[in-house]
């Protein structure tokens, strides 16, 4: 049994039609992770120690356990304590929470790279805490890590096939269904792989370019 072009062309639109669903889930999860990531970053730096430690523990735990099991937990187990989500919300939330822990690390590295003198200068100028964060620190901390933040959009995109485990009809689920009903898996799964390459490679190149530009723009900042 080898590659069958006719079959491939026939099923391609069916698989590719999941693209809007995949993009929707990716963007939804990305927004969750961007916002929650920032919240985690602040909570971890909180001067209220129990909150800081709890956040640290949460980040370590979520980051080192499989997103697949977290997905099952959110979708199957949470209803037992009265939190029922449909499969799309469960998928977006799980991926969003999982990667918020990564993004909080990215934010943290950005904040850590702001020179100490900036904090001291802000204090010397009598800025409030909020002013210091939003007018002095974050505007310097975020731009250098924008490429890394952008990269997580791609990472999330590539994680979406996971959601087939709870029956979300993304690319791989579609391909799997087609494969099972035709007893031909080669074409459908290869098409899924190609779709990912086709969509992620140009984005990767774009992010790379962004990275070079931000290096130029912010490279001398520390001096």
């Amino acid at each position: 049994m080898t590659w069958n072009w006719e079959f491939a062309f026939e099923i391609f639109p069916e698989i590719a039609s999941a693209i809007w669903l995949v993009i929707g889930i990716t963007i939804g999860a990305y927004i969750v992770s961007l916002v929650l990531g920032l919240v985690l970053t602040f909570a971890r730096r909180s001067s209220f120690k129990p909150l800081a430690y709890l956040t640290y523990g949460f980040i370590e735990f979520v980051r080192s356990t499989p997103p697949l099991v977290q997905l099952f937990f959110v979708y199957f187990a949470l209803p037992a304590i009265g939190i029922s989500l449909n499969k799309y919300a469960a998928g977006i939330l799980t991926l969003g929470i999982h990667y918020s822990t990564y993004l909080s690390e990215v934010y943290r590295s950005g904040i850590d790279s702001v020179p100490k003198g900036q904090w001291e200068a802000a204090r010397a100028m009598n800025f409030s805490k909020i002013q210091t964060w939003f007018r002095v620190i974050l505007p310097q901390a975020i731009p250098p890590v924008i490429p890394m933040i952008g990269n997580y959009l791609l990472v999330l995109f590539k994680e979406t096939p996971l959601l087939m485990a709870i029956g979300v009809g993304e690319f791989l689920q579609e391909a799997q269904l087609i494969g099972a009903s035709n007893f031909r898996y080669l074409e459908p799964i290869t098409i899924v792989g190609l779709l990912f390459l086709l969509l992620s490679y140009p984005s990767a190149v774009l992010i790379n370019k962004l990275e070079q530009r931000s290096k130029l723009g912010f490279g001398t900042r520390k001096n």
């Binding site: 690319f171 391909a175 990912f196 990767a204």
Partner: peptide
């Protein structure tokens, strides 16, 4: 490297398990 980083682990796993038997 680009091939494996550009697609999903789960897709690769399925390809190796379900599609490779075609060969």
């Amino acid at each position: 490297v680009e091939l494996f980083r550009g697609t999903s682990l789960l897709v690769q796993l399925f390809w190796i398990y379900f599609a490779l038997p075609a060969f």
